[in-house]
Amino acid sequence: MFTPLTADFYEAPTLELSRSLLGQILVHELPEGIVAGRIVETEAYMGAEDRAAHSFGNRRTKRTEVMFGRAGLVYTYQMHTHTLINVVSGPVDTPRAILIRAVEPVEGIDLMAELRGRHLPIKQWTSGPGKLTKAMGITMEYYGHHFTERPLYIAEGEPVHAIAAGPRVGIGNSLEAVSYPYRFFEQDNPFVSKFR
């Protein structure tokens, strides 16, 4: 039903890829069934020259190591109790990544309800980077996995025509990088995270 996009999809420059990811389908094939969400919000982190990036100044640690790898690798990290998922981007040794901030549920609605909590309205299941990984059963174990490979991959969706851009969320201490318009989202989509 879903087919992973090929590796060349990820070869685009980071900001271009951030926009191209909108409308594509993030798929996780779980033992209990498939969950899938249409990507509606992304945030680009431009590596060495971007103060908001974990790899600012080419910082190479156990956590950031995967960002130095090839485009299309999975970069997961923990923030508080949440797992956040990113798409590694840019040429090898250029540590850039794109955070998947929000998806719109398209498949496995029941399973997502189970994973997120049936008491929550559907609009709150996947409207944020920590929420969507919970709803889709995505854990830290995917660090270093490649998005072209099952069971976690990105499949072709429909292109998004109304794309808006703005500053990234929650990066308050990163000086000039605070205002870079590196957050991309589908206009008027109810699953885009609330901008505080």
Results as ranks from 00 to 15, higher is better:
111 L>I: 14
173 N>D: 12
177 A>N: 01
24 Q>H: 04
59 R>A: 12
57 G>D: 09
74 V>R: 01
111 L>A: 02
81 T>W: 14
142 Y>A: 02
172 G>I: 05
141 E>Q: 15
80 H>D: 14
44 A>E: 00
31 P>Q: 05
111 L>Q: 04
91 P>G: 10
174 S>N: 12
123 K>D: 11
7 A>T: 13
196 R>F: 07
5 L>H: 04
50 D>V: 06
91 P>V: 10
182 Y>R: 01
115 L>Q: 05
178 V>I: 14
54 H>N: 09
76 T>K: 07
4 P>Y: 03
81 T>E: 12
155 A>L: 08
17 L>A: 01
67 M>R: 08
12 A>N: 09
55 S>V: 12
135 A>D: 05
180 Y>T: 02
179 S>N: 14
109 I>R: 07
10 Y>R: 03
30 L>E: 03
55 S>A: 15
116 R>V: 10
68 F>V: 03
63 R>C: 11
69 G>H: 03
121 P>E: 05
120 L>G: 00
116 R>P: 10
131 K>E: 08
69 G>P: 06
107 E>S: 14
91 P>E: 15
124 Q>V: 09
121 P>T: 03
21 L>R: 02
138 I>Q: 04
35 V>N: 02
116 R>K: 13
62 K>H: 14
88 V>K: 04
69 G>N: 04
71 A>N: 01
129 P>V: 03
35 V>S: 02
162 A>L: 12
66 V>F: 03
6 T>A: 14
161 H>M: 12
11 E>C: 13
3 T>D: 13
7 A>M: 05
19 R>D: 00
144 G>W: 11
125 W>K: 02
68 F>W: 04
112 M>R: 00
38 R>T: 12
133 T>Q: 06
124 Q>M: 13
28 H>Q: 08
150 R>T: 12
155 A>N: 06
1 M>L: 14
114 E>R: 13
12 A>Q: 14
79 M>T: 15
107 E>P: 06
2 F>L: 05
59 R>Y: 03
11 E>K: 15
29 E>N: 10
41 E>L: 11
2 F>D: 01
183 R>V: 09
45 Y>D: 04
32 E>W: 08
109 I>L: 15
52 A>S: 10
32 E>P: 07
54 H>S: 03
167 P>I: 02
99 L>N: 05
77 Y>H: 14
27 V>G: 02
67 M>P: 13
108 G>H: 07
56 F>W: 14
10 Y>A: 04
120 L>I: 12
151 P>F: 03
114 E>N: 08
158 E>R: 13
184 F>N: 04
149 E>Q: 15
